[in-house]
Design a binder for these strands. Structure first.
Lengths: 338, 338
DNA sequence: ATGAAAGCGCTAACAG
DNA sequence: CTGTTAGCGCTTTCAT
């Protein structure tokens, strides 16, 4: 890794001139420019980004925090984010928080000192998110993806879907297709998005005049796998459900598995509707009907909103007003519902 | 973000003293140490890692290149790598190459100028990997994970399983359990690991005196989905297979799907064996028997070998001799084979 | 159009 | 034990 000084010497010019031709600033005599360019070519010189970052106060790096990249949902988001960041010359540092607020917090603290230019965060379920709000308050471009709290709206940049409406529509679809006893595989209540989906489910039921039955809502006890038992339980009710709405595809997979083991046919005995449209859902047996979130696009949107904030901040010294990007969902009917 | 100078001023000492207490080098008067520590506390000072990196020539950052994080296989590896890197204070930059050698190459070039301390790479299938070998040649700690070429052995650090033996054992298991017509969902031939798995399959057949039938090996035409058609074809043979060995779990998922659509029961009509043991395989219907690679651990091992190289290089100025870490596989019998 | 010089924030001799 | 100083590699006034 040659340094600019070496290039300058070899070309018989000063480092400032080399810098100038490399950055296309102000005019440089085209003869000298040529000479410099040649040397750069020969020596395979690449400017040291670290030094540049230090000088300029920017690193062209953003940081993504997700609970776990092993969860397909976050894998899709990550892909979208990385793709669009890369196209703009940004690198992305990945951190798996494992739903541990301590890890999340420590990581953010550490990353701040890297002059990371922005943070895209799918926050951990448990934690108080004050340190995330502080992040923005202290001037870091920040985007919440998927997961966010009510109070964040208007205060932070957010990329999400309308979880209430999406769940409402999903439930409505199940009702419209003749189902009356609709069970819900609900997500962890600490997460606003799951409370919203729950609300949507309740509202759709109410609007259709179907009485709410708490025995029909399965709650996550310890990890997604807990829906295996929950499914067995709900299916052994005197009046078992004729449809199950899982509030995420990974949950739907374990419900599906439990149903198979119970000898129940999908959708003949019970319809199953998921939420997310993760890549694998189309390969399940039967292929899973689901409320599709545009996960990849949400990752792209998160990157874009971060880039936008970074730009704005570099121009105006402050962050732009927060926006809430609410993306549309698609109801994807495959063969697990009828 | 306060700077060390400010801390120094506030504490009434010089920056070097602050640096010393922060780095625990040489002795500092415990009274002054206290004072400095207090100011550090108050101002929430974190040293600027960029400046430190520039000065020291190290960034405590490694780079991971994978074809796509959306592929569960790479998600597991990534998780293992990130977990162990983080524990050692390293950040990891993620790049999805999408099997595009151009992207891979460009990314590596760019990352070199970030003073990235090491590269963990699951190389793209197509490309000539000279630039990866150059990476090591030019002094960058490098680890190949899963995918590698014959010629890399001994020349580069590699973390993999013994693909030949694993496929041999998997096939052997199928034979031992009474199968004679064993089809193979083979992977892309450009990948050494798939050629090895193919060899293992052939060898096991030969050793058991079962004639090789080329009609029984399905080849990837265009993405994993092409195995859907291939499965239909092979099942419509006059003498269809009584078992299918898929050389990766994602392939097994589409084979399984095709089998279902064909009305074939697994394992009654045909046994199905996968390769990888991706998280979802246990949730399939039926749960997939598979040759389990320790993917998470392979990620950990890749991080460790990188860390080891980095250490060694910092001490001795050169990279340590390359090692090939061959990890064991587990035959995981679930319910898709009998 | 080009060079000299200052400085981004930090570490590491080298003096004292 | 502590302060001074010289850079790490680069950008950017400010002169020339």
């Amino acid at each position: 890794m040659a340094s600019m000084k070496e290039v300058a010497d070899a070309a018989g010019v000063s480092v400032s001139t080399v810098s100038r031709v490399l950055n296309g600033k102000s005019c440089v005599n085209s003869a000298t420019r040529q000479r410099v360019l040649e040397v750069v070519e020969q020596t395979k010189f690449h400017p040291n980004v670290l030094a540049k970052s230090l000088k300029l106060g920017r690193s062209h790096t953003i940081c993504l925090l997700v609970p776990s990249i092993e969860n397909q949902i976050f894998a899709h988001i990550t892909r979208g984010l990385e793709d669009t960041a890369r196209k703009s010359g940004f690198a992305v540092v990945l951190c798996n928080t494992d739903e541990d607020a301590m890890v999340e917090r420590a990581y953010i603290d550490k990353m701040k000192t890297y002059w990371i230019e922005g943070f895209a965060i799918c926050p951990t379920a448990g934690g108080n998110e004050d340190y995330i709000r502080d992040l923005r308050a202290s001037g870091f471009p920040t985007a919440l993806v998927c997961r966010y709290s009510q109070e964040d709206v208007g205060a932070m940049d957010i990329v999400s879907v309308d979880n209430y409406q999406a769940a409402y529509d999903g439930t409505k679809y199940l009702i419209r297709t003749g189902h009356r006893r609709i069970a819900l595989a609900a997500g962890r209540e600490e997460l606003f998005l799951y409370r919203e989906r729950y609300r949507g489910y309740c509202a759709a039921l109410a609007d259709a005049g179907i009485p709410y039955d708490d025995e029909l809502v399965m709650r996550e006890v310890s990890g997604t796998d807990s829906f295996y038992q929950a499914t067995r339980q709900v299916m052994s009710l005197p009046e078992p459900p004729d449809a199950i709405f899982a509030t995420s595809d990974p949950k739907a997979f374990v419900v599906m598995h439990a149903l198979h083991d119970l000898g129940k046919r999908i959708p003949q005995d019970v319809s199953l509707l998921g939420f997310d449209n993760v890549a694998l859902s189309s390969n399940m047996e039967p292929p899973l009907s689901t409320v599709g979130q545009p996960l990849y696009e949400m990752g792209c949107a998160a990157a874009k909103t971060l880039l936008r904030q970074i730009d704005y901040k570099n121009k105006n010294g402050v962050l732009p007003p927060a926006i809430h990007h609410v993306m549309g969902v698609d109801l994807i009917i495959r063969r697990s519902t009828n």
